[in-house]
């Protein structure tokens, strides 16, 4: 008789990590919606605004890719700190992408909310 091995369910924290990873690109683009920011400011914005604490070793290379894809542009600006900082801003293509991503996110979370409504109701 064949024995079916049922894998153990993933722990909730692992699922959370996967979810956060998927949202990082959208979170970075959204953080730059209304102003230009440099790398460290973007990380602080993510940590304050959405509790996304992301290591520097992840954010900088990702910014570099978003720039290579034409979603961001960058410029060096002399700062009071005594050294220049590299500021990022959204390009026109980047702005269109955030709008599309935000629209998708809203539809997706609305339909998920409908599914979750009975769960929330019974869990109370």
């Amino acid at each position: 008789m064949a024995v079916r091995v049922i894998p153990a369910p993933e722990p909730i924290d692992k699922w959370e990590v996967q979810l956060r990873k998927g949202c990082l690109e959208l979170a970075i683009l959204a953080a730059l919606w209304s102003e230009r920011l440099y790398g460290l400011e973007i990380m602080r914005r993510l940590a304050d605004g959405s509790n996304l604490i992301v290591p520097e070793g992840t954010v900088y290379p990702l910014l570099s890719r978003l720039k290579a894809e034409g979603l961001l542009s960058s410029e060096w600006v002399e700062a009071d700190a005594g050294h220049p900082r590299k500021y990022y801003r959204l390009t026109a293509v980047g702005r269109r992408r955030v709008v599309e991503m935000a629209r998708f996110w809203e539809n997706f979370s609305a339909s998920l909310d409908d599914l979750l409504a009975p769960v929330r109701k019974d869990a109370r």
């Binding site: 290591p55 070793g57 290379p61 890719r65």
Partner: peptide, 24 residues
């Protein structure tokens, strides 16, 4: 320490860069 070893940071840059360029 927060940035991680230079080799690992470079590997992430190269991978992201490779993805962007190769996908294009």
């Amino acid at each position: 320490h927060r940035l991680g070893p230079a080799s690992a940071l470079a590997a992430t840059y190269l991978t992201e860069n490779l993805l962007a360029r190769a996908e294009r």
